[in-house]
């Protein structure tokens, strides 16, 4: 009996939450909105591109917010030219995955350590209230040994923005221009598999995200094509590997000649391996790994009991 009461209470609370976000314009139009926050052009594709494509294939409406301008990651290009090319390529990649719009905030790559976290949070908060997503993807700020620290800073700001977006005392002027508070029911923390402890469950089953692996076999090709669209970054990666090997009297036969074909092949190897790493010890052949906080995680345990 108690169990039934618990289930009914949970159902009512979930229904209440669904009503809250169900009142958004996007939901009224019967479209589930997926909002993806990324520090740079490549991270969300490599870590979450297959899962996002699957949601968009299923009819969701996708919006991408790219925080930096990626102006550092190139080979023999100026920052300005790098930023210009990567913006174009990033938009192509997003189109392949099925996004409706891409917003680029334009912060200089590698400089977010000097940006006010509150400023960053409030800019992301703006988009959460604008798009009223049902699903939010953010870089996982708790993923250890992620070398690109922009991802850490953006992850922290985005996590804070998701919470603050639901509270009216944050950014009251937004309400004046019609951006009402919004609760995002589902949250996916993504990261490439740097963290050796990424599969360890968090300490409690409620209120904290837990590890989750999702099958991406059906959208793997889309993910691959999106990753390959980032030509400037991919060329830079290939050149850096070749340069390091040459400086230590080694070579990678694949990169003896760096051209579109060899770079695309390198990307393919990378994407296949990432999917294999995420699928290890799961029922899937190709997967992506997340820490996931769904609706049930947002109900305090005292109410569940």
């Amino acid at each position: 009996m108690n169990f039934l009461k618990q289930r009914m209470t949970t159902t009512l609370l979930v229904a209440s939450l669904l009503l809250v976000f169900g009142s958004s314009p996007a939901a009224a139009a019967d479209k589930k909105v997926v909002l993806v926050i990324t520090a740079d052009a490549s991270d969300y594709i490599l870590a979450a591109g297959g899962t996002i494509a699957k949601m968009l294939d299923a009819g969701a409406e996708g919006y991408l917010v790219r925080v930096t301008n990626d102006d550092k990651d190139s080979w023999d290009l100026t920052p300005e030219e790098t930023a210009r090319r990567t913006r174009e390529e990033s938009e192509q990649a997003a189109k392949i995955l099925g996004f409706k719009e891409v917003e680029s905030l334009g912060y200089r790559a590698g400089e977010l350590g000097g940006v006010s976290p509150t400023e960053l949070r409030d800019r992301i908060l703006f988009y959460i209230r604008l798009y009223k997503p049902a699903v939010l993807f953010i870089p996982n700020p708790y993923a250890e040994y992620v070398e690109v620290l922009d991802r850490f800073y953006v992850g922290q700001a985005a996590e804070d923005a998701r919470r603050a977006a639901s509270l009216s005392n944050y950014q009251p002027p937004f309400a004046v221009v019609g951006l009402e508070t919004h609760v995002t029911p589902e949250l996916y923390y993504y990261a490439q598999p740097f963290d050796p402890r990424r599969r360890e469950a968090e300490s409690t089953a409620t209120f904290v995200p837990q590890p989750k692996a999702l099958d991406i076999a059906s959208t793997f090709d889309k993910k691959l094509r999106a990753a390959q669209a980032l030509k400037t970054i991919n060329h830079s990666t290939a050149m850096r590997i070749k340069d390091r090997l040459e400086s230590t009297d080694r070579r990678l036969p694949l990169l003896d000649e760096i051209n579109e074909e060899s770079v695309n092949r390198l990307v393919e190897i990378n994407i296949h391996k990432l999917a294999e790493i995420a699928a290890k010890d799961t029922e899937h052949s190709q997967a992506e790994e997340f820490h996931y906080a769904g609706v049930e995680y947002q109900i305090p345990s005292k109410y569940l009991q």
Partner: peptide, 21 residues
């Protein structure tokens, strides 16, 4: 953190396929 650990999808491939000049 070793030489290729910052590219987890390529670590194994580069290690296994890099050859001397």
């Amino acid at each position: 953190r070793a030489e290729w650990d910052h590219r987890p999808g390529l670590t194994e491939y580069v290690k296994n396929n890099a050859v001397s000049q």
